[in-house]
């Protein structure tokens, strides 16, 4: 079971968190000016990196903050956990 080191609450079991998907998916700032292809890309397409993966988790049974993790999705090792960095598409925490 993952142990996520919440920057606010300290290390907590994975069961306190809820997963929020890839962190490098930035919502287009002006959706109405975004073309279909770019909008579909934001909505649906994912890198699904096999290796280090930047992802969002929410500490729902804690501080309720959305956090940014870099995690190895093969070993499940958590490399870092931090407050969100913006813009999201920037390279990792």
């Amino acid at each position: 079971m993952l142990l996520i080191d919440c920057p606010h609450c300290g290390p907590r079991a994975q069961t306190e968190f809820s997963y929020g998907g890839a962190a490098n998916v930035a919502r287009p700032p002006a959706p109405e000016e975004t073309d279909d292809a770019a909008w579909i890309e934001y909505l649906y397409l994912r890198d699904n990196a096999k290796g280090q993966h930047d992802e969002l988790w929410q500490h729902i049974f804690g501080c309720r903050r959305w956090l940014q993790l870099r995690r190895d999705v093969i070993s499940h090792e958590i490399i870092s956990c931090s407050e969100l960095r913006r813009p999201l598409a920037e390279d990792g925490p």
């Binding site: 079971m1 993952l2 994975q14 069961t15 809820s18 997963y19 890839a22 699904n48 096999k50 993966h53 992802e55 988790w57 995690r71 999705v73 093969i74 070993s75 499940h76």
Partner: peptide, 13 residues
């Protein structure tokens, strides 16, 4: 299990 993974193993919950 509910998070991206390429490991063919999961956790207890």
């Amino acid at each position: 299990d509910g998070y991206n993974s390429f490991a063919q193993r999961g956790n207890l919950p």
